[in-house]
Structures are given as structure tokens and as C-alpha cells.
Design a protein around this nucleic acid. Structure first.
Lengths: 170, 170
DNA sequence: ACCATAAGTTCTATTATAGAACTGTCAATA
DNA sequence: TATTGACAGTTCTATAATAGAACTTATGGT
């Protein structure tokens, strides 16, 4: 599968993966949320090759996640800043960081702590239901085809079957 | 930077990216949450090459995200199922799906809808503060070095400076 | 004996990435 | 004036990852 094909998939996960689903894009976005905005600063803090950095920044601008703001004329120089679409990636970044905090830290503990400005406490992000406010886990959720779905996959039908009979056996 | 180097970074995002930060791993995990468990089923529903699928499954098992459960002896056959560590990836998957729902859908609408079993309503995931329960955005959060941090980067210090003076100018 | 199922492995061609050097423009300094 | 440094890329080559197809191994059914 090509990258371009991902964007066309009738799946919101696949389409998002087309934007952020490679290692460097996510690391570039981390830097954006840490207020890094300039080419050489990204390069210095990430150790990414200049070639790839130019490529990823271009991609993120193309998808409307970053915007180029001129900060000096002659020679033209730009800062890369997050658009609203980019700022909306924050829950993704935070849930990735949180999973790492829980499952990937070494004995020295967390590299970074987060303080909620309004309540002034160190916190972890929690994902809740928009309707009832309860915390969410995979087993609490049913999926349904939406208006943008294509016909359901035979693989998934078969998997559902097996998952069901597996539970009956158990 | 090599993939192995990512795991060693003192950054929970980088370490998580080492596990799920490539396009195929995320798509494989999507299928896991849709109850797909067998090699050929993954292959059929994703169109991933068999070579890469074997590689990614091996990686996810190595990181403890998936576990191999034998379902038939002679020839040995295994199902790949999510461990608790893997199930804990659900907030990441859901926030990715939600961002796609908001920013990447075409005119036909969402490919998939989510129903919360306990409150029986269609919902969106919302990220809130574990301490006060308020919804979180990037601007509401201060970051602090934690016990596992290394000394702060000069790039970030410089970026903070510029972000501050930028606000003063504005 | 023949075919199907299942889970890989092996092969070659193409594409992406790493790492380093190079380019162009301007501002500040000697 | 000549030189140096900041900045944002582009270009180059060697290496690594991926796509796509065919092949392997073991078993069960007809």
C-alpha cells in the first residue's frame, strides 16, 4: 500500500495515519508542542536529517497541521506553527505520552510531568465518554458502520464469529 | 536515528513511537481492536505484505503488546491477542480515530460510529484531567522535568524565550 | 492422489532514510 | 572590504525498509 492510498481509505484511523503515522512526524509534532518553530531548532533537537525534516515539514503544511509564518524578509524566513487542526492533535500526543509513562519508563521514572494550569496539580490524561463522562475502555464500546462506511468486510464478520464462539467455549 | 535508539530516549513519546510509530503497526492494532486475530485475516483485511506482517507481529509480541495463543496443535497455529498493555493503547487509537473523524472525513461522513455500551449513546472520546475532570487543551498545560529527565535542552530554552517575546510583541 | 487451509519464508525490484557536504542570502564583525 | 556565522534548505551516495510475488511445510478432507 502506498501512502497516498491511506488517505483514501474509508477509515478515520488510516487517514490520520497518513498524516502522522511515521516516526519523524510524531517527533516533529512533539517539538511543536514544546514551542520549537524553526528549521535548525527542529534539526538540532531531533537529530533528524535536514532532508527528511524539510520533507516532513512540507507534508505537515500540506495537510494543514502546520502553517508557515514569515518572521524575516530577505532572506525569507519562516516559523512553523501549529494550526487549530494541529493543536487538535494534542489528545493523541498526550495519550501516547501517557502510555509511555505507564508502560515504557525505566527505573529512573518519568522524563516529564504535566501540570494542569487551572487546577494547579500534576495530572494524567483520562479518556471519557462525551455523553456520560465515564472513563472509556475498549470493552465498553460497540462499533457501528457510519454513513461513510463501505460494505462490511468478510474478514471482520469471520473474526466476530470466532470471537463470539471463543467466549462461549470459555 | 535508528529504531533501537528511540527506545532509549528519555521521552515517553519517543519510546511509544518505537512501538507503534509506523503505519503498519497502527493498522495492525486497529484490526486487533476489531477482533482480528489470525495471520491470514490480518493479511486479507489490510493488504499488508506477508513479510511485513510477520515482522510487525513479531515486534508487537516482543514489546508485550500482543500475545500468541495456540489454537491448534500440529501444525502449531497461534492467535494474536492484545495483552493488557495492548488494551491500554485504546485511548491512543480512539484519539487518532476521533481526529480523523473531525478533520479528515469526506462528504459522505464518518466511516464508523461508536456506541458506549453503558449509556447506550453514540459518543466521541474526550480527554480530561485526572485530577479535576476538566477537558484538556495544550494551552492549559505546563510541562516540568520529571525524575527520569536529562538536563534541559538549549533548543527548548531558546524556543521558550522566543515564544515569550513573541507574545509580548503581539 | 489431489486440493484447500494456514502461517510463514525467500526472492528481487523499488522506495525511503541516514549522513555528510554543498548553496544562497543576509547581518554582524574584523 | 573581506570574513564569519546564522539560517533554511538542496544535492549526493550508501544503506535499510518495503512491495509484490512465489515458494515451503504440515495437515485434513474428498
Amino acid at each position: 500500500m502506498k501512502w497516498d492510498a491511506l488517505e483514501e481509505e474509508p477509515c478515520s484511523l488510516a487517514r490520520t495515519v497518513a498524516v502522522i503515522g511515521d516516526r519523524w512526524s510524531l517527533l516533529v509534532l512533539r517539538e511543536c508542542f514544546l514551542r520549537v518553530r524553526r528549521f535548525d531548532d527542529f534539526q538540532a533537537s531531533l537529530g533528524i536529517t535536514r532532508h527528511l525534516l524539510a520533507d516532513r515539514l512540507k507534508k505537515l503544511v500540506r495537510f494543514g497541521v502546520l502553517r508557515k509564518i514569515p518572521y524575516r524578509e530577505a532572506p525569507k524566513r519562516y516559523e512553523y506553527i501549529l494550526t487549530q487542526k494541529g493543536l487538535d492533535l494534542y489528545p493523541i500526543i498526550m495519550s501516547i505520552v501517557h502510555w509511555g509513562n505507564v508502560h515504557m519508563v525505566d527505573s529512573r521514572g518519568r522524563p516529564m510531568l504535566h501540570e494542569h494550569k487551572s487546577c494547579k496539580r500534576m495530572f494524567d490524561p483520562v479518556m471519557v465518554c462525551s455523553e456520560c463522562g465515564e472513563p472509556l475502555a475498549a470493552k465498553d464500546v460497540h462499533v457501528h458502520p457510519g454513513p461513510g462506511a463501505r460494505q462490511s468486510s468478510p474478514v471482520h464478520a469471520k473474526a466476530q464469529e470466532r470471537a463470539k464462539s471463543g467466549r462461549e467455549r470459555a
